[in-house]
Design a binder for these strands. Structure first.
Lengths: 178, 178
DNA sequence: CTGAAATTTCTGTTTATACTGAAATTGAAT
DNA sequence: ATTCAATTTCAGTATAAACAGAAATTTCAG
């Protein structure tokens, strides 16, 4: 399956973006390919399209499945796995966000809580203040994220499209003073 | 300047987080150290505290200055540069966001626009639809970001702390249907 | 139970990035 | 103009991540 020029460039760009955000380039490329593909692909086809070793595809697919971004499906009379990903960008985005929050942000918040206690015990008022400051910020953002992630997708989209317009609906109190 | 245990662990954790998000570990550590420090530090002191070569510190500081996260200051009768960063976590966050949007998101949106045109010209309706879908999503998010970034910081914080509570102020229309 | 296709695991190699230390440059004081 | 501290650049080295290919494992058909 030869890729069109546009598809190829999209995949390359996505791989590049991935590596800038801490995602393995090949993993990002595999995901981009599945995102573009109208139907599920076998590992074999993926490796061929991207020119990477079969084993590398296997590892990347495993990774994507762990992130809940890719699912394996099957066909009657065919033992191979067929892989696919959602074509709904919002859903992909929310999945990635959820995973990174769970794997990185939440453990960090917990660690900062411990470190703030430790810094206080060590009698380091400045360090305590800084760590507590970071801790409070992440908690604030995390609380916001948790609430937002519970909203129905359409409400979420409406809020994004409202943009700064939300403020005009709010009573004065919320607008300003610290 | 020996670091306290809490400070040391904070810096290590921050370096680890950095490398998961595509930021050089040492760069992240230097920033973490400056964030904790009550007063500006020289490159010499930074290298000593983190046990990295002077040249490496120099490169990392340059990088942080390019990101507008670190500023050099001076003292009378001292030729050395003293480096510092904001202790306001919100401001740090917004700076990082602004920089990454400018360097990565905006160029990606532009590239996706071109690729969507190209895919259409190549007569690839599915690929066109996917690329256009991604393009539309990033545009949506980018528009939201631009509006939010223009709000006064206090308004922004209020919105975050309101969380899903915003929805109760909105007229029904915004709440639901696509 | 055997054999073959598909997949995964593992080990050695490659590659990209980070880092060091030396050399070069800058720039202020004399 | 010269010197010297401070900083940056650069070339080589080290390190860690990514990758390929072989070997091992799984899974299903017969």
């Amino acid at each position: 399956m030869a890729l069109s020029k546009a598809a190829n460039e999209f995949i390359l760009h996505w791989g590049e973006m991935g590596s800038r955000w801490g995602v393995n380039r090949t993993v990002a490329q595999v995901h981009a390919l599945l995102y573009l593909s109208p139907e599920p692909l076998t590992a074999e086809e993926i490796g061929e399209a991207l020119s990477v070793a079969r084993s590398n595809v296997s590892t990347s697919l495993r990774e994507l499945q762990n992130w809940e971004l890719v699912q394996a499906t099957h066909r009657m009379g065919d033992r191979r796995d067929f892989f696919s990903t959602s074509h709904d960008v919002w859903q992909l985005f929310l999945t990635v966000l959820e995973q990174r929050v769970e794997r990185e942000i939440e453990p960090t918040i917990a660690a900062l809580g411990r470190l703030a206690v430790e810094a206080r015990a060590e009698n380091q008022p400045e360090v305590t203040a800084r760590i507590a400051g970071m801790h409070a910020f992440l908690n604030e953002m995390h609380g916001w994220y948790r609430q937002m992630s519970k909203l129905p997708p359409n409400t979420l989209r409406s809020l994004v499209n409202l943009g700064a317009g939300v403020t005009k609906w709010l009573p004065g109190k919320a607008k300003g003073e610290q």
